[in-house]
């Protein structure tokens, strides 16, 4: 869906649902997911429909993911960090993640 115009920024190793992904410094979680070709980042709590980042400006809350164990983080506002663990959020996330 997206490609990088320039390979600027140092590589940052993250995992998404256990899979290793190379992001770049300056990426947000949502941007890293988009460029990695992830088809969705969560399913909705009401009907379980798949959702992917939509607005990338903190408004829509469709890029909610679990970051380092904390659920419902807005992926478009969280910068990637070396070793970060990202999980797709399924429906109502588990309490206490």
């Amino acid at each position: 869906m997206f490609k990088r115009l320039a390979e600027a920024g140092a590589p940052v190793a993250i995992t998404v649902d256990g899979k290793a992904i190379s992001a770049r410094a300056g990426d947000t979680v949502a941007a890293a997911l988009l460029v990695a070709g992830i088809d969705h980042c969560r399913t909705t709590p009401v009907t379980g429909a798949p959702r992917a980042p939509y607005c990338l400006m903190g408004v829509c809350f469709d890029c909610l993911v679990t970051v380092d164990g904390v659920g419902s983080r807005q992926g478009c506002l969280v910068p990637v960090r070396e070793g970060m663990t990202i999980e797709t959020q399924l429906g109502k996330r588990e309490a206490g993640r």
Partner: peptide, 20 residues
Amino acid sequence: PGVMTAGGAQTALKAQGLLP
């Protein structure tokens, strides 16, 4: 998934250099 706002795509371009 696959539907986004134009502003979102523009943000990805400006901030991370991502191109559709």
